[in-house]
């Protein structure tokens, strides 16, 4: 059965640095990855191998040079490398979630609204969206007093929990997690693991980068090794 929710075919990514005399920096070459619904794949490989680059390509944040990125969206197959900006926005709104290492803070917006925003964008009533956001933030041990504050002045761990809540609240069918537990304490790490397991149980296809091997072993079904390109490690040095 073609049970995949997200797959790449011969994905190629090379950076061309025009400001460095047009130097070319190959990072990914011929990456074939397939992730099924309900499955969590952990990306492995040495530092600099291109794990984060692959994640960003999958989200459409980096443009791919060659190959295809296919995603099941509204029952159809969409090639993200060829989709126009509006279609990518729609896929991100409905199908493809991303928890990055850092929260890109929007000034003056309360944490609660940051978490509720993707729910509202998917058509949920603002009050219901806030209720869900509140429940999720509380589950991540965020004291209610912080819900009304913009996260700009929060600690790294607090920001990361806002980020997690925002990523998990909508229940995306495909979820990309880039170091989701990096700055969390043990208790919140457990909550994060539980959230990932629940997402899988609900049928989400999850791709993650986990430096914390304990967390990785608790959530990942298999590893996918991103091979470093020899030229890449040389140029990056």
């Amino acid at each position: 059965m073609s049970g995949w929710a997200l797959r790449t075919e011969g994905l190629v990514k090379t950076f061309t640095l025009h400001l460095q005399g047009g130097a070319r920096l190959p990072v990914l070459y011929g990456v074939d990855l397939s992730v099924a619904s309900g499955e969590c794949v952990a990306l492995a490989g040495p530092s600099g191998a291109g794990k984060s680059t692959l994640m960003r390509c999958l989200y459409g944040n980096y443009g791919a040079e060659g190959g295809r990125i296919l995603i099941r969206h509204r029952g159809e197959t969409v090639d993200l490398t060829a989709a126009d900006a509006r279609l990518v926005r729609e896929v991100r709104r409905e199908t493809l979630g991303h928890v990055s290492q850092f929260l890109r803070v929007i000034p003056r917006v309360p944490s609660l609204d940051i978490v509720a925003e993707p729910l509202v964008a998917r058509g949920m009533a603002p009050d219901a969206a806030r209720a869900e956001a509140r429940a999720l933030l509380s589950r991540l041990n965020m004291p209610p007093a912080l819900h009304a504050l913009p996260p700009a002045t929060f600690s790294g761990g607090e920001q990361q929990r806002v980020n997690l809540a925002r990523g998990f609240a909508p229940g995306y069918p495909v979820l990309l997690l880039d170091e989701p537990t990096a700055s969390l304490d043990a208790a919140n790490r457990d909550v994060a693991v539980a959230l990932i397991r629940e997402a899988k149980a609900a049928g989400a296809a999850v791709v993650g980068i986990f430096h914390d091997t304990d967390v990785r072993d608790r959530v990942a079904d298999r590893l996918f090794t991103v091979e470093p390109r020899p030229e890449a490690s040389r140029s990056a040095a």
């Binding site: 025009h18 960003r56 944040n61 443009g63 900006a85 926005r89």
Partner: peptide, 14 residues
């Protein structure tokens, strides 16, 4: 031209 974060995070043109 393109998606804002794509253009700003992975700019193609010199």
């Amino acid at each position: 031209h393109g998606l804002t974060d794509r253009v700003l995070d992975d700019p193609q043109h010199e």
